[in-house]
Amino acid sequence: MEPLLYIADLEKQVMDDFHLGPINLKLEPGTITALIGNNGSGKSTLLKTIMNLVKPDHGNIKIDNMFVHGENENWKRLVAYQPQTIIGWDAFTGEMLKKLIAPLYPDWDEALFQKMVELFEVPLGKKFAKLSQGVQQKLNLALTIPRNAPLLILDEPTSFMDIPSKKLLIDLLVEWMESGNRSILIASHQIDDIKKLSDYLFVLHNGKMLGHFEKEELTSTYARYWLRDSLSDTRIPGEVTREDRMIISDNPMETEAYLEAKGIQWSNRSSLELDDIITILLNNKKM
């Protein structure tokens, strides 16, 4: 299948102190990818580069086979982007923004917009600047998702929202994905978004890409063992961290082969939660 979003060898130097890339990424229609990384890992910069708001030093980005930095700007209709901090809406009311945005998208779903405004209880007559951050995010979502663009890019869309609304959004997005040929790229620190929504995880650390993983592939790569006996100091194949008799491995096959060969028994083996895995991924790179 033709990727909806295609990024190859993307690199960008920002000021003197931050380098993004090289980034390679392909998004297939019908999938949800969570963009994960520590603070300052370059998630927003990456999303802005996809939107051609930041210009790459090197590499290519294509949306539905159109270069985003090319003369043809038709790709813009295929993306609905919700930035982390929205700029330019302060002076307007929700109603004005709706009238501005809706006619620009041929597949605008007015019913969905009305439903979201109602569910999230967003006042449309108030100026954007006068809304609380959580309500701003809700309005922003209500003005972004119904655009029904094939590629939905969300940059920490729920960071200020209450828990019920976060759950509601997950359900809305699941329903939104039913059409089959849409994709979501969502930068998020919310473990629920990652667990319930994502199919793939794209992990960034300080501008470097740590990997693009299928969720179960990632969880099956890690295992935790409780050993019957204490260990010598030598590092076991696959070992990531060790605490007394508990070790975590990112290569269970090798680890078990080694333990069996050495006659070391383990009393328990369990898989890791996704947040633990993410922590390991992001922490280990700091060393």
Binding site: T31, V174, E178, D199
Partner: peptide
């Protein structure tokens, strides 16, 4: 349930 909905409930990817 649809593949997407079941994936959400079971917290797994649609690939699985």
């Amino acid at each position: 349930p649809s593949i997407r909905a079941l994936s959400k409930d079971l917290e797994i990817s649609i690939i699985t």
